[in-house]
Amino acid sequence: MPINVTLDIMLAKRKMSLNELSEKVGVTSPNLSILKTGKAKGVRFSTLEKLCEVLGCQPADLLEYLPEKQK
């Protein structure tokens, strides 16, 4: 999929662990791990909203479009 989730970069910028984010967002660590590793098939707006709220960022900071050739 050409959509890449850059959650790991944002976590590193905010110096936050996945478990900490999981507690604050209310999404389980395994699910966040699926999202972080790019195995997720989709992201709900509600999840994206919570992530943006906790990490203090925009949806565009968490997602990027990489055409297949560039990947």
Binding site: V27, I34, K41, V43, R44
Partner: peptide, 8 residues
């Protein structure tokens, strides 16, 4: 079902 389960 798989798509639903992998939608976070």
């Amino acid at each position: 079902k798989q798509d639903h389960e992998l939608t976070i």
